[in-house]
Design a protein around this nucleic acid. Structure first.
Lengths: 203, 203, 203, 203
DNA sequence: TATGAATGAGGGTTCATTCAT
DNA sequence: GATGAATGAACCCTCATTCAT
């Protein structure tokens, strides 16, 4: 597997990963069997081992392949001149869009579940959150400097805002919380945005 | 198991559940073996079947037994006269204390992990959150009525506030996020409380 | 498996080893399946893992248990006063008896076969041969000192004598060589003894 | 495969056998995989089946191809006039040379290992030994007739002499016995030759 | 001729569950 | 009640063999 491989090889490999992802999400690493994955992918279970060293290798490859690190990073550094009143709704729309993506959804299910038992998965999830928080904190920092927001610790502001939003989406979409599903996303967005702006408006 | 049982029987049963809880938390339902649990409980694996129908029965019994529904319910209905400036820090202290409890910690790990794959676990987690949100929303409603907070949807206010705090604790304690572990809980509490009060101060 | 076990446990364990030995001898380590061994022992294949860590562990345990190191060691150190004319036939009778033992036969088959591919098995076989050669060489040394044999290197004498005899037995019993099977053991013994005594008679 | 094939076909076939031989010797029939053999031969595993019916067919072809029957036959029938004092060292040199040949070494490893479990391999080894013993016994018979050796059974003489020498080489080269590896081949040859000549000198 | 993807049978191993003791 | 030997199903994985290309 160290030799370079043909395009078809990579396509097939990716096809297996795409089939495995929902199986891992639904049943977990231990609960997912190669038989399940093979059926989902339309191949014999043994074929997995032409493309991956082991079930664990396939699992890690799935996460690496579909890990939403880049998807999650919004181009906030180019939007420093956009005032918070406009940017916050955009940010929320972006997050909402990401959470609607089927693969993001699946990888998050897998990562959150595994985070509960392996430090490795926890670390990956922490990295993802950091990729989300850091650019936003930098944006907030710039807004504070520009006098558009009150003085304060931008990292805490970012953590607080993103935490409440992220858990809203997680509980709504993954946790299937009926209370949150009954809520309108736009209404929530307006509410959270308004609260944030009042909380951190300049004195 | 339908006949009434002696006290010793129930004690033994509970002892097994207490031993099983950390094993399930660490290894997950599929990863935990009856041998593991038996060793942890100091009994032979076969004995589990005198107290539980199956491994799954034991698992569900563990969650039911240690589900932190009651622990999570703060007596907010008796504290309607306490102003938010005082109550919010108390609430955060209470939540912090709950998250420090070993069994709460373990059950949450299990429930969050299972939530990612079974609707049943998700539902249980939603109930827990509801038990947290509803009394707080009622409290906020009362504060609004008393003119201590601005007009607004109290359920949204409660969701937002508790979401950001809950995810802070989850990521800090279960997810072992180094960024959050470096933060001081009291500082976070002051920050979140201050932001909330500014956001929802009466006009 | 580190805890002390009951007698029954050791008996069962030994029973499995006794059943496994002929299977390993007939089919080799890789060729022998747990199903074969289980059938031979009258148990389910999975039960092997209550008594042994793995198939390899069982294999090594078989060899250690039935390795003929002690059987092979004749009490030559107490027979220094017996002249070679009497001792050599006794030695050959002893070797012949050992080679007739079913378990010796089986272990030798296994060890010789494995010697062809693993250094570990080769080493065990070398140790066995050394246990055979060294006491005999010491005996010969004493005979030379007593003037009953001519001067010469006793280790070479022992190696030469035992090699020709050992290969005779191996080819006859394990290799099923029809030429050697047609020979009479006693005749061979007289022949070899006579040749040895003439070759190493004192000048 | 019944049709006559081109020279290239036979060359390719032989190339595969040459590659397979060391793989079979090192890992045994079951342990050697077609992938191993293909890599060693620089071909894809599937190609083996253009030249051989099965892995077993390849295995047998390897042994037949490289079986050292002819290599082992020394032209003793032309050397009847050479006295034993000269011929025995020549014989030992010849055997030593044969055992040094890589392919002889490999085939012997395979055959000895398989001899331990299949009558077919045992039979082949017996034939090889017979091809070694018979001409030597004929030579000894002639020497006895010529009065250069004492009366006696020449087949036994040959068996005894060749057995001790063969096991010396096998244990030294295949079994990697450190005691024998420390010995000098020439010294061993002189020792064995001297002993033989004294044992069977005319009265 | 040659490749290597694909299959499927079967291997070693684990483990929930049962049951004689 | 309590044990742990015993089972059997199902797991992950390997690999000889086939076959479309």
């Amino acid at each position: 597997m160290s030799k370079p491989q043909s395009n078809e090889w990579y396509e097939r490999r990716r096809q297996i990963m795409e089939a495995a992802l929902p199986v891992f999400a639904e049943k977990g690493f231990k609960g997912a069997t190669n038989k399940d994955i093979g059926e989902q992918a339309g191949i014999a279970p043994g074929l997995i081992y032409h493309y991956f060293k082991s079930k664990e290798d396939l699992f890690n490859a799935c996460i690496d392949e579909f890990l939403p690190i880049d998807r999650v990073r919004l181009p906030l550094e180019t939007m420093i001149d956009v005032p918070p009143q406009q940017l916050l709704p955009l940010l929320l729309q972006g997050l909402n869009a990401i959470f609607q993506e089927p693969k993001f959804f699946l990888v998050m299910r897998i990562l959150i579940a595994e985070t509960m038992r392996t430090a490795e998965a926890a670390s990956r999830l922490n990295v993802i959150f950091k990729h989300l928080v850091d650019p936003f904190a930098a944006y907030l920092q710039a807004q504070i400097a520009a006098g558009r927001l009150r003085e304060g610790e931008p990292v805490l502001m970012a953590q607080m805002f993103l935490s409440s939003v992220a858990l809203f989406f997680i509980r709504r979409i993954i946790g299937q919380d009926p209370v949150l599903q009954a809520m309108d996303v736009d209404e929530m967005a307006r509410f959270v945005t308004g609260a944030f702006l009042r909380a951190f408006a300049p004195d």
